[in-house]
Every structure is written in structure tokens, then in C-alpha cells.
Design a protein around this nucleic acid. Structure first.
Lengths: 333, 333
DNA sequence: TGATTTTATGAAAGCGTTTACATAATTGTG
DNA sequence: CACAATTATGTAAACGCTTTCATAAAATCA
């Protein structure tokens, strides 16, 4: 590998000057710059970012922890981030936490050892306290899809309560009163908050909430199918079913069809997230939009502004979900 | 930041010894190891991987280039890779090439500048020659989802011709002879090869191929919808439609429904890829499985074996697709 | 033109590790 | 117990940059 030193020799300048032209720092005469450039080209020089990082104490790398890589949710989020970071020539070092506190910590640790300039974390198992602690230790990090009061400034999240509210409110508005709810895991904040929103909507419209109409799933399609079956089996009567995500909604639709109930004529269905396949279902799934790509890009902007001192970027800390009307909801007969 | 030097002082040993315990190299007495360990713990030492990388000329980082991050395809692939790499404590530096030769090259360059130990590339725009060249320069890389003869050893791909064949052969086997084909972009190798497979199947079964029954889409759902509309508009008669991917198949199903044609009673539909939402559609989409996660993990094993000298890992260079039977295909009436 | 400011360059000290190589301590052998 | 073999540790030179500080060259000014 050819080094800056060899280039400097060939160009007849010092290595400091070569460094200056590489980084566009300091001042260097146009003529010298050209000298250096041709020397680099002729020798096939490739900048060694590792050495540069050590010397400058900046890696231009963002550590990214997500629970999983498969599925379309995190890809969309990271895509949003990547787009914003690419222009700034930053890179992403990606790790998965598998919703396991132990693994999440190890990954955060590993990314810190690699001297990432900042971290973007979607972590689910690690405690609030742990994250607060990191921030207090001076670790530059932004927590996405999770809100922690003490470090609210470092969080970018969706108002899940509002989303849950919007979904059920829509069903109520078009006339449903018997609304089944297939919740996500109630151990997760999203799952809990979306259910809370559902309950608030019912309360607002004077409809009594009953556990009998609620089923706790696990965010996977299959649990949507099971949820509908279980609800029917326990004799629950409903004209609509709200689901805590699109996967479960799609699972629910499958079960409803099996039972000979048409969507939306007999039963309305609403999902949550607006993942890309929601529009491929037929009828297209009415759902709540989770602006996940936007969250990803805001996380990037947060980092760009706070860590790299780029000119003020815009970002909000709590985003609003909105209703996406498609074909799976209609007024009850 | 506390350094190895400070630890060594506190533990009363040399920094070489500290390095040894960190890396588990050389020999160090159990007692000394403990001394060092406690010193590290007390000082809150965090290993500086950047410095280590510079000194050892190994970054334990794999550069990964994919066209995009959104959608479920690349997430699944990277997930396969990540799983295999995590155990080996390697990390992934991710970049997107956007199917643009210029960008792809820049990204490859950037990853090389960061001294990635190896690259995993899903690149679409850059020429075969360019990649062959990199390999000849000694760059450790594996090309996924693309086959280049000269560097076949560095490629892991799917037999797309066979996949296209399997799909149409299935339709033929159950009695269809009027089979429309919605191709992916024919500028891309996958698109071309899958169509070739389709044509081979027809030939094998003595059915004549006609351009009139073929529509060139772009792998996006909408082009599936447009494809069906265009075929019908040009008066094509068909009892089945084979699509070059699942998105287009889902789009095709939407168009068919609009036209009042039932799936599969009136028209059978088959997709390609077996992306995760294929099973959420109803009826479930019959398709060709693209073992994308497996490809991701094989790429990881290739790297582990070839670059890090881990004990022999298994991987094949050309994987076989297989038929996934669900509900969108049936014999014509 | 000489003094002064500004611009351009170089020398050299890090940055925090790893890793030959040398040496010291320990263990084993006859 | 002396000597060899083995095991454990230390010394110090890289690794390839960045960056401060000093100095030289060029530009500006009076």
C-alpha cells in the first residue's frame, strides 16, 4: 500500500502538505495541489481512513443498532438515514440487538470500541436507565422509536398513543361500536401505547371497553390469524378489528376469510405501520402511517448537527402518525 | 479515554502484556491476567479498535454494498450475513449503490479506504471487468446475486434461468398453454435470465413463445398492474400469468381483480422471490423461492474461510430456486 | 525598498495499538 | 543441582495519518 510519505516524496513536498490536499484543510498553492494530485494518481494512492481516524479522533462512522435486519421496517428506516448520511460522507456500521438486553449492550459496546462518532439505537430490551447513563457519560446517541423523558432531546419517536387513537377513532367515526382489538406484545411500549390509544378513542366516543374484545398478539402475522380465531371462539361479536400492526392485520384478514366473513363488507380491518405490502393486499389495507423513513433521516440530521456541527438541520422529536384510507374499512351494515 | 498504557501502569506490567490479555494471544500467567483485568475494570478501559486496526492491519469489518436498503430483499440478505458474522465478531459497514455505476464505484472505494478486510457486493451497474479487475488487484470480495465467469469463485448467485423455468413449467404441468409473462427489466441479468427460463419451459413442452404475451416491467408492483392491463388491451388471451417477481405478481393480481377475473379460478398467477409478504396475500402467492438469506450467509462463510482462515465453511456458488405452492395457481377450466 | 501581513510549507510529536525480538522467570531433566 | 527447554514478560519500533508550531515565501503597504 502506498502511503502519504511516498506521495510526498514523489511530489517533492512534505507529508503535511499531502494531508492538506487530501483533506482540503489549511492552505496550499494551486500548483502544489496539482503536483500532489498527480503523484497520488501515478502511485495509485488510497487514503487510509483508519490511520486518519486514529490521528484525528474522528471516524466519520455512525453505529446503528436495530433489533433485526429482515422485514421491511428497519430497512426503510436505515434507508432514510443512509440517504442523509451519504451526502455528508458518513458511513454506517450496523449491528443487531435481537431484542436481548445482553446482546444490545454488547453491540453498543462494540460500536463504541470502534470509536463511532455517534450511535443510532433502536433497542428494546435495555433499560431506560442504561441509555440515560450512556448519554450522561457523554456518548453521542439518538434513540429512535422510543421516548425516554430524561433524555428527550436524544429521542425521535412516533406518538403511538395517537396512532392507536386515530385507528379506532376512524372505525368509530364510520359507525362501528363493536371493535375487536388485536394488540401487539404488551411487554413492548408500542404495543401498550397503541392499545391505550384504542381505549381512549372508545372512551371519547362513549363506547365501553371490554377485555373480551381484546387479544394480545406478538406483532407477527400468525398471531393475527390466531387472534381472530380466538375472539370468535370466545363468542366475541364485532364488526371491525383494529390491529397493532399490518402483519397481524393481514393475518386477521386470512382468518376472517376462512370464516367466510368478507372484508370490509362484513368486518372492517385496520392495521398499523403502513409497511410496503399493505398496499399490495386486496383490498388495500387501511392503516396508520408510521413515517419510519422520516425517523431514520431525522436521526441522521440530529447526528449531523450535533456531532459534526453541520448547519442547523431540522428534526422533531415526536412525530405524528396519520390515517391511510384504503379498502379494508367501511361502515357497518 | 483511558489507554492501554495507563492500564499497564496500574497493573504493574508492560503494555505488551495488556495487549496480550485483550487479544488472548501469546502467553500470560493467570495471575497477571487477573491483575490486568481488574486494572481495566477499575479504570473503565475500552479497547480502541481503530488503533488496533492500524497496528494489526486488520479491521474485522466487512464492507457491504447493496442497491437499496428499503424493501425486504436486502434486509433478509444482510440478516443472513450478519448472523454468521456476529459469532465471529465481525462487523458490517453498509453502503448503497443505487444501481448507479458511479456511486457503486465511489462506495467500493470508500469501503476500501476504510480498510475493510473484505467486501460483499450486490452491484448492478458496474461492469464485470471492473469487478474482475478488483479481484486481480487482490481485493477480497464476493459478488452476490450475479455470476461472472472469470471470477466464479468469488460469486454466489441463484440460477435464475432455472427459476424462470420452474415457474412456467409448473403452469404448463397443470395444463396451461396460454401463459402471459410479465418480465422484469431486461437490462438486468435477473430479468433476462428469468425470461429465458420461461422460454425454455415453453419450448420443452412444445408451446410456441410469442412476444405478444410478454410485457416488460420494472420489478415494481405498479408495472405488474400495468402489464396485465396492457396485455389485455392488446387482446392477448391467457389463462395464467408468470411474473418475474412477487411485487409485480401482486400488482398483476390487483389488475386482474379490477377486470373481474378471479385468481386462480380464471387466471393463475405465479411470482418470483418468495418475499415475506407473498404469504400474506390471499390467496397466498405461488412463487419461486429465492433463498436470499442463505445467499447472505454463504457470502459470510466465504469471507470467514477465505479472509479470516476460519475452518472450512460450506458454501455453494450457484443455488437452486424451488417452487413454493400456494393458492394462486390451479388448472385451467 | 524595507517593513508588515498573509499565505504556504515543513518538522516532528503524537494518536493507541500490535508484534518482533530480547530477556527474564519458571519448569523439567538427568 | 546445573543446564536446557519452556513459558512469561518487557522494550521499542512500527502502523499511516493529523496537527501544532515554527519558519519560509509571497503579497501588501507605505
Amino acid at each position: 500500500m502506498v502511503t502519504i510519505k511516498q506521495v510526498s516524496k514523489k511530489a517533492g513536498v512534505s507529508s503535511a502538505t499531502v494531508s492538506r490536499v487530501i483533506n482540503n484543510t489549511g492552505t496550499v498553492k494551486e500548483k502544489t495541489r496539482e503536483l500532489v494530485m498527480t503523484a497520488m494518481a501515478e502511485l495509485g494512492y488510497r487514503h487510509n481512513v483508519v490511520a486518519a481516524s486514529l490521528a484525528s479522533n474522528k471516524t466519520h462512522t455512525i453505529g446503528y443498532v436495530v433489533p433485526e435486519l429482515h422485514g421491511s421496517f428497519f430497512g426503510a428506516m436505515m434507508g432514510g438515514t443512509e440517504q442523509a448520511l451519504r451526502q455528508a460522507k458518513k458511513h454506517m456500521l450496523i449491528a443487531t440487538g435481537h431484542s436481548d438486553a445482553q446482546i444490545e449492550k454488547e453491540q453498543i459496546d462494540a460500536l463504541l470500541s470502534r470509536r463511532c462518532d455517534a450511535l443510532i439505537l433502536h433497542v428494546e430490551a435495555v433499560s431506560d436507565e442504561y441509555l440515560v447513563n450512556l448519554v450522561q457519560q457523554g456518548v453521542e446517541l439518538v434513540v429512535v422509536n422510543r421516548f425516554i423523558e430524561e433524555i428527550g432531546d436524544n429521542c425521535i419517536s412516533l406518538d403511538n398513543v395517537k396512532g392507536g387513537y386515530l385507528a379506532s377513532r376512524h372505525l368509530l367515526d364510520i359507525g362501528h361500536t363493536q371493535i375487536a382489538y388485536i394488540a401487539g406484545s404488551l411487554l413492548k411500549a408500542d404495543g401498550k401505547n397503541r392499545l391505550t390509544g384504542h381505549q381512549q378513542a372508545l372512551a371519547d366516543m362513549g363506547v365501553e371497553y371490554t377485555d373480551n374484545l381484546t387479544y394480545e398478539g406478538n406483532f407477527q402475522a400468525k398471531s393475527g390469524t390466531e387472534g381472530v380465531r380466538a375472539l370468535v371462539a370466545r363468542g366475541a361479536k364485532f364488526t371491525a378489528v383494529a390491529c397493532a400492526n399490518d402483519e397481524m392485520a393481514s393475518g386477521a384478514m386470512i382468518a376472517l376469510r376462512e370464516l367466510g366473513r368478507r372484508v370490509p363488507e362484513d368486518v372492517s380491518v385496520i392495521g398499523f405501520d403502513n409497511v410496503d405490502f399493505a398496499s399490495y393486499l386486496s383490498p388495500g389495507l387501511t392503516t396508520i402511517d408510521y413515517p419510519v423513513q422520516k425517523i431514520g433521516s431525522m436521526a441522521a440530521h440530529w447526528v449531523l448537527e450535533r456531532v459534526y456541527g453541520h448547519t442547523r438541520h431540522e428534526y422533531q422529536h415526536i412525530l405524528s402518525p396519520r390515517l391511510i384510507l384504503r379498502g379494508t374499512t367501511s361502515s357497518p351494515e
